[in-house]
């Protein structure tokens, strides 16, 4: 058994080297601050709900999972399923295909993919008085009455918040989060 040790240690060392290298290199990426847009959007999606307060009727304290509906963007729905295992505010995500528009009332969060730009206005009109956090990267989404809009500014992904739309929906947006928005309505 003892004879195995050096080999094992060598292997271990090699593995650690590889991992170090990996971390180092992703560190390079991190230091350069590069991430692809999809990953960024997902990261925002995972983090934003913590700073939104739903009415107790819509999100009872014992709710285990946020219902995240994804409308249109099929790939995003697939990625979001990975997000399903993630947690925000001690709650996980239950990702639902928003294609069944009749079910939107059950969503806590509604992500509208940019393939749905053509009907974004109609979707918003339908859900604006429901306690649903609407998020999209569609141009002028927040201005149209969406609550959070991702905007690209000089290679950075930022967001706008429509506070009055959030008010109409019965959601309370943390004021510190609102300060981070590049624009509020």
């Amino acid at each position: 058994m003892k004879a195995d040790w050096p080999v094992k240690r060598l292997r271990e060392r090699r593995m650690r080297l590889a991992v170090l290298l990996a971390v180092g290199l992703s560190g390079v990426a991190g230091a350069n601050g590069d991430m692809d847009v999809e990953t960024l959007k997902l990261s925002y999606l995972a983090k934003l709900p913590k700073f939104i307060e739903w009415p107790a009727a819509a999100l009872p304290a014992d709710t285990q999972a946020f219902t995240l509906c994804v409308l249109g963007d099929e790939s995003l729905a697939a990625i979001a399923r990975q997000l399903g295992q993630q947690q925000a505010q001690q709650r996980s995500f239950n990702v639902v295909d928003g294609k069944r528009v009749g079910n939107l009332g059950k969503c806590h969060i509604l992500y509208v993919g940019n393939s749905e730009e053509w009907r974004a206005g109609s979707v918003l009109a339908k859900v604006q008085r429901s306690p649903i956090l609407t998020i999209s990267d569609i141009h002028d989404f927040a201005k149209q009455g969406g609550i959070v809009e991702f905007v690209e500014q000089d290679r950075h992904l930022k967001f706008e918040i429509n506070l009055s739309a959030a008010g109409k929906a019965g959601l309370r947006v943390n004021s510190k989060l609102a300060e981070l928005a590049v624009k509020t309505y």
Binding site: N32, G33, D34, D36, K50, E152, L177, L180
Partner: peptide, 28 residues
Amino acid sequence: IALSHAAAPDASLEEIQQLGEVHANRSD
């Protein structure tokens, strides 16, 4: 690995602020 790391759970406001500071690359 970097990807799954990016979608980390429970967030602080600083983390959200940091997201706004990274360079957003076109996806594939």
